[in-house]
Design a protein around this nucleic acid. Structure first.
Lengths: 341, 341
DNA sequence: TTGAAAGCGCTAACAT
DNA sequence: ATGTTAGCGCTTTCAA
C-alpha cells in the first residue's frame, strides 16, 4: 500500500510528531531533521492521506457543489468560477450532478454528507412545491453553511447569489413591446417551477406597464429542454400559428425555438422577432444578431464561492446577492417585415 | 459535530459492532436490534463518515477523473458517461479539471492521491514531449489502474479508449478530394501536440492515396481555441487567401473557423467548402448541413468506466479500445460554385 | 527542539 | 447473535 507517516518516521529516524510537523510546515523543527524527513518523503513517494487527516482534525476542507445539469454551459461556467476561487483559498471541491432529478439529489446529498463537506453550494432541483419543505429540512439538518445559486427554495430562506430574472424578463418583454409587438409567445417550461414563475411575472408586468394585456395562450408550458421547445415551435409553424415575436426564457428553450425556426426557414427578424434570456454559444459563434439579456455565470460561481468562504471564516453576514443580467439589443427584436404565409 | 457510531450504539444500547453490522447490512443481527439501531440512526440523523470507513478498510471507493477542459462539451459528455456507469457500480467519482495546464495537472494528481483513488481515468495534458517521460513516471508511481481517454501518452503504453483520429481525418480529407478539392486548409493546433499528429497524418495519407500532394502552408498552426482559429481564418479572408475548403480538426477549431466565415459572409458551400471532426452543438441546433465525422463521447465515457471497473475487479486484460467516428455527409463538402473575389 | 501517546470514527477478527 | 478490541494514518496535547 501507500507509504505512511510511520514509514517516513522510521526511515528518517525521527518521531511521528516531527514528520507531521514537516508535512504541515509547522515551526520547531531543526533544519537537519527537516532535510532528513523531506528526503524520506521523496524517496518513498509519500502523500498524506486525506482520510487520516480529516479524521484526526475532525474537519474536512471540502466544499460540496451540487448542480442540476452538468452539460448545460451555464453550469459549466459556474463550476469554473467556483473552482477558481476555491482553489485559491485551499479548498477542494466535490462536485455532484443531480440531473434535475430529486432522487439523484437525495443520493448526492448523502454522499456529500459522508464526505463531511464544510459547506454546500447548490442549485437545488426543487421548484416542485411537493419537495420544497423536505429540502428545507434536509438542508437545515446538515448544519453547515449553504449558498444557493440561481434558484431559491420556495419555503426556505437561504443566502445565495441570484439573477434578477424578473427584471430581465421585464426588460426583454418591454423591448419587444416598444418595437410594436403584443403577440409574444414565451415558452415557460414547467409553470409551477421556480425557474418560470419570476420570469412570467416580469413578462406580465411589462404588458401591464404599457397598459396592455396579453393572451394567456401565448405562455406555453413545456419541458426545460431543447427538444421540447423545438416541438412546441414546430407545431406553431405547422399550424400556421406563429406570433410576431418569441421569447426564449432559458438558454435551452432559446435553442429549441431557434432550431425549429431555422429548420423551417423562418428568418429573424424578417419573418419573426426574437429575444432571449441567458447567453447562447451558438450566438457567440455565429453572431446571429440576437437580442439577449446575458448572465455572467462565471461571476456567479466566483461570488458563490467567495460568500461560502466568508461564511466558513465566520464572517457570516446574511447575504443575498442579486446580479443584474445585461441586455444587449442587437436587432432581432425589430418588428418583422412580413410574417410567413 | 455530526453523530457517530458511538452515539448510535449508546442510544440503542447495543455494541459498536452491531451498529456497524446494521449500517452495512451484514448478517447476524436480530430483527429487534436492527429496528432499534435504525430508529436511533433516523433520530440522530446519522450518516457514516467516509473518512473513518476508508481508514479502517484501507481502501476508498473513488475513481479519479481528470479532464483538461470542463467547459468543452466533448468532456461534459464523457463525464456523463463515466458517472452513469460508476454510479451504477457503487463507485464515487472525484473530478478534477486541469485546464490543459501541466502545473494544474500535477496539483490535481496530488489531490487525487491524497484521496487514495482506486483508479484514474484521464485525458492527460501531455502532448508536449518535454513532459511525457515525467507523466509516465507519475502514473506508474501511482500503482493503480489507469485508463486513458482520447489521448495517449507518447512514451507510455496505457490502456484506454481512443478514437481513430487518423482514419477519421483520412475519410474527411478523402471526401473533400473526391469533390474536387486539393487546396484544403486545416488548422492543426500545436503541431507537436499529440492531438494534431495523427490527424495530420490522416490528412496527408488521403492526399497520397489519391496521388496528390498538398501545400504544407495549408497546415496552419494555432492555439486549440475558438479565438485562435477565428483569428487565423479572419486573416486568410482579409488577405484574400482562402482555399477552396477548410477542415475543422477539433470542435473548438471548427467553431472558430465558422465564426470567421459567417462574420464575413463567406457562405458554405456556395463560397467555400467545409468538413469537420467531432460533433458541433451549433450544427445540432441550427442544422447547418455540415459534413462531420462525429464522435460518441458519452459512449467513450461509459467504456472508460467499464474498463476501469473490470480492472478493479481483477479482470485485467490489456485493452485499448479504438472507437470509430461516424462520417455524416451533409453537403458542406461540395465544391463551391464561386469563391469570393 | 523533539518525542510519546491519546484520540478521531469506523471495520473486522476474535471471543463469548 | 452480540460484544470487545485492535488497528487504519494522522494531529495534537503534554512531557521531556
Amino acid at each position: 500500500m501507500a507509504a505512511t507517516i510511520h514509514d517516513i518516521a522510521k526511515r528518517s529516524k525521527v518521531s511521528l510528531a516531527t514528520v507531521s510537523r514537516v508535512i504541515n510546515n509547522a515551526p520547531h523543527v531543526s533544519e537537519k531533521l527537516k532535510q532528513k524527513v523531506e528526503t524520506a518523503i521523496k524517496e518513498l513517494n509519500y502523500i498524506p492521506s486525506a482520510y487520516a487527516r480529516v479524521l484526526s482534525k475532525n474537519q474536512s476542507n471540502i466544499i460540496g457543489v451540487m448542480i442540476p445539469e452538468i452539460t448545460n454551459p451555464f453550469f459549466g461556467e459556474i463550476i469554473t468560477g467556483i473552482t477558481e476561487v476555491a482553489d485559491a483559498e485551499g479548498f477542494n471541491v466535490l462536485l455532484v450532478n443531480t440531473d434535475e432529478n430529486v432522487e439523484k439529489e437525495a443520493r448526492s446529498i448523502r454522499i456529500l454528507r459522508e464526505y463531511r463537506i464544510r459547506g454546500l453550494i447548490s442549485t437545488p432541483v426543487t421548484g416542485d412545491n411537493k419537495y420544497d419543505r423536505q429540502y428545507v429540512n434536509l438542508f437545515e439538518n446538515m448544519n453547515i453553511p449553504i449558498v444557493l445559486m440561481d434558484r431559491g427554495i420556495k419555503n426556505g430562506d437561504f443566502d445565495g447569489i441570484y439573477f434578477d430574472d424578473e427584471t430581465a424578463l421585464f426588460k426583454i418583454t418591454s423591448t419587444l413591446i416598444e418595437n410594436g409587438h403584443s403577440d409574444i409567445v414565451m415558452l415557460i417550461g414547467i409553470p409551477h417551477h421556480i425557474v418560470s414563475q419570476r420570469r412570467v411575472r416580469g413578462y406580465g408586468d411589462a404588458f401591464e406597464a404599457n397598459n396592455l394585456s396579453y393572451d394567456k395562450k401565448n405562455l406555453i408550458p413545456c419541458e426545460f429542454s431543447i427538444d421540447s421547445a423545438y416541438s412546441v415551435i414546430k407545431k406553431l409553424i405547422q399550424d400556421n400559428d406563429l406570433p410576431t415575436a418569441i421569447i426564449g426564457m432559458t438558454n435551452m428553450l432559446s435553442m429549441g425555438c431557434l432550431k425549429a425556426l431555422y429548420e423551417y426557414g423562418v428568418s429573424i427578424p424578417r419573418n419573426i422577432s426574437f429575444a432571449g434570456y441567458d447567453r447562447l454559444e451558438i450566438h457567440d459563434v455565429l453572431n446571429m444578431n440576437l437580442t439577449l439579456a446575458e448572465k455572467d455565470a462565471v461571476e456567479m460561481g466566483r461570488k458563490a464561492a467567495a460568500l461560502m468562504i466568508d461564511k466558513l471564516s465566520g464572517k457570516s453576514v446574511p447575504n443575498k446577492t442579486i446580479l443584474m443580467p445585461e441586455l444587449f439589443i442587437r436587432g432581432s427584436e425589430k418588428f418583422p417585415e412580413k410574417t410567413l404565409p
